[in-house]
Amino acid sequence: MHPAPSLILFTVLSGTGFGLLVWLGLGLAAPVGVAAFMLFGLGYALSGAGLIAAAFHLGHPERALKAFTQWRSSWLSREAVLASATMAIMAPHAASSVFAGTPLPLFGWLGAVLALVTIFATAMIYTQIKAVPRWRHWSTPPVFVLAALAGGALLAAQSTLALLLMLALGVAMVTHWVIGDRQFTEAGSDTGTATGLGGLGKVRLLEPPHSGRNYLLREMVHVVGRKHAYKLRIIALATGVLIPVALLLILPLGYATIALALILHLAGMAAQRWLFFAEAEHVVGLYYGKR
C-alpha cells in the first residue's frame, strides 16, 4: 500500500494525542491551572491536527461532515464519531481543571474510555480490510493502541508507565511483523485463484491491461519501499522503543530526558507506520503480476 504522508502523520499524531487524553482523563496526571492548559491543549492540538491531516487525504474535504452518518457499518465513520465524542465529553473535565482547578472525574473517565475506543477504531479501519492480509489480524490493533498509550504516557511525563508500555509495544510490533510475514500466503490468494485458472496450470501475467500506470497501482501496489524493510524494522524498534527505554533507565529523570525519549519515540513510530503501509500487500497486485 502507498505510504501516504498524511496518513502516517494522522495515525501517529492523533494516536499520541488521544493516548495523552486517556491518561489525563483517568487522572494519572492531574494537572490544574496553567499545567492543565498546556497538557490538555497538547492533547486536543495533537488529536485535532491528526484529524486535519487526515482530511487532507480526502478528495472532497468539504463533504467531510457526511462521514458522521454511517457508524452502524463503517469503522471510518465510527472513528469520526468517537473522536468528536471524546473531545466533547472530555471538554468539561479539561475546562474545569484549567479554570477552576478542580478535575471532573466522571467526564474524565468517560472521555478516557472514548479516547481508547477511538484509537481502537483507527486500528480497525486497517484491520478490517481482508484484501490486505498483513493487516487483517488481531496483532494489528495492539500496535496502534500501545503506541498511542506509550506516546501519551511520555507526554504526560509518566516515565515508569511509558517505559512499561514501550516494552509492550516492542513485543506487539515484533509479533505483528512476524505474523504479518506469513499472512499473505495463509490468506490463500494467488494468481490462480485471482483468475480462477489455477486448476489448469501455472498462471502468469502475459500482458498488463495498459502500458502506463493507474490509480490502483499507485495506491495499492507499492513495491519500492520493501527493499529495506528489515533495516527499517530495526530502526523503528530501536528509535521507537529500545533507545527511549534505555534513556529513561540511564539518564536522570527530568523533562529533558522525557522530551528526548518522546522525540525519538515519535520518529520511530513514523518509521513503523511508514512500514505498516509500505510492507502491506494488496491482493489486487496479483492481477498485475506484482505483490
Binding site: 471510518l76 495506491e219 495499492m220 494488496h282
Partner: peptide
Amino acid sequence: SDCIGCGLCAWACPYGAREMDASEKV
C-alpha cells in the same frame, strides 16, 4: 455527490474494480 474521496472502498475491493478519478476526486 456524497463521496468524500477517501479511497477506502477501493482498498476494500480485492479485485481493483474501483478507481478514484484524478480530476473529479470521486
